[in-house]
Amino acid sequence: DLSALRVEEVQNVINAMQKILECPICLELIKEPVSTKCDHIFCKFCMLKLLNQKKGPSQCPLCKNDITKRSLQESTRFSQLVEELLKIICAFQLDTGLEYANSYNFAKKENNSPEHLKDEVSIIQSMGYRNRAKRLLQSEPENPSLQETSLSVQLSNLGTVRTLRTKQRIQPQRTSVYIELGSDSSEDTVNKATYCSVGDQELLQITPQGTRDEISLDSAKKAACEFSETDVTNTEHHQPSNNDLNTTEKRAAERHPEKYQGSSVSNLHVEPCGTNTHASSLQHENSSLLLTKDRMNVEKAEF
C-alpha cells in the first residue's frame, strides 16, 4: 500500500496539472479547448457565450486583445492532455480508494470495455495498479461463464418462442383441414349439385314461356288486323247491294208514291245487322237523297 506522504505528493502534482488545464472563465477543466490569436485557451462554450454578448469583436479576458469567431481554432494537443489527466485522476481514485477533492464528473469518461483496460497499462506502473489488474484478471474467467449461461438462457427462450410460433402455425392448418373434411358430406355435395341443376332447368323453362307469350301476342295482333281488313271488305261488298236497293226503291216510288213515303220513313230507323257505323252513315245519306228525289217527283206529278 501507498504511504500517506506519497499520496499527498501525487495529489499535489495532480492539482498543479489541473490548474494549468483549467479554463480562466469557468475555472474547470477545459472541455473542447479553443485557442485565440494571443495563444490563450478557453472552453469553446465559454468563448461563444462571451462573443454573443456583444456585437462585433470582444476582448480576451487575459490580455484584452480583440477576439472574433473566425480567429478561434481548435487545439487537439490540449484536448489530449486533458484526457490523460482524467485517466490519471481515475487511476488515483481506484488505487487509494479516496475521492479526489477537486474531482469532476468523471463517470462519463469511464469505460469498462476490454480495449480501455489494455490502455490503462500505459498509465502508471504502481503496486495498487498491479493489484487491481490481478483482481480484474481473476474476475475475467467468471465473466465468460456468466456470458455462457446468459447465452444458453437466451437460446432456450428463443427455442420456446420458436416452438410456440410453430404450434400457432400448425393449429390453424389443422382446424382448416378439419373444417374441410367435416363441413360438407358427400350427400350434401350431391344435393347441392341437384339443386343447381334444377335451378338451371327452371331458368331454361322460364325463358321459352316468355317467348311463347310474345308469339301469342303477335298472333293476336295479326288476327285483329285481319279482322279489321275483313270488316272493310264487308262494308265494300254491302255498298253495291245498297245501291241495288236504292234503284228498286226509286222504281217503286215512281209507281206508288204514297205507299213509299211511309216505308221510307220506317227504313230510316232500321239498321242492317253486321255493318259498322260507317255503313250506317252512308245509308242515312242515301235515304235522305231518296226522300228529296221522291218529293221532286211528287211535285212534278201535281203540276
Rank of each mutant, 00 (worst) to 15 (best):
R132A: 04
E148Q: 07
V161R: 11
K300I: 08
M17L: 09
P141G: 07
R255G: 08
M296T: 12
Q59S: 02
F92V: 09
G262N: 12
N105W: 03
P272K: 08
E142T: 08
S122H: 05
K250G: 12
K134T: 11
E120V: 14
E142G: 06
N143F: 02
S150P: 12
N12T: 06
A224V: 08
E258T: 08
D213K: 04
K64I: 09
S263M: 13
V161F: 03
I25G: 04
C38P: 14
Q73G: 05
M127F: 00
L51F: 06
G128F: 01
N105P: 04
R70L: 10
E254Q: 13
K134L: 02
V153W: 01
L94R: 11
R132G: 11
S71N: 01
L289S: 01
D213F: 03
G210Y: 00
E22I: 02
R70C: 11
N157L: 01
E285L: 07
A133D: 04
A253V: 10
P240C: 15
G159C: 03
T76L: 15
L48C: 12
M47I: 05
N246E: 11
L94N: 14
C38A: 15
V82P: 00
P257N: 07
T149L: 00
T96D: 12
S228F: 00
H284T: 04
I89G: 08
H40C: 10
N15Y: 09
C273Y: 03
A252E: 12
K37F: 01
T247D: 13
T207G: 12
S266C: 09
A193E: 12
L98I: 04
C26M: 15
L72Q: 07
I215N: 13
S3F: 03
P33W: 13
L290R: 05
D294T: 08
C90K: 09
R77M: 07
C63A: 15
F42E: 13
V121Y: 08
I25F: 04
V82G: 04
P114A: 09
Q168S: 06
Q147M: 04
L290M: 08
S185G: 14
R162A: 04
S79R: 10
L94K: 13
R130W: 00
L2K: 09
P272L: 00
V34R: 09
R174Y: 01
C225L: 09
N191P: 14
P144F: 07
S152W: 12
R169G: 10
A133C: 02
D231F: 11
P208K: 08
S156P: 13
S156M: 03
A16G: 05
I89V: 08
A133F: 13
F45A: 09
T36R: 13
P141H: 06
A279D: 15
D66T: 11
R135S: 03
C60A: 14
M127A: 01
L62A: 04
T292I: 02
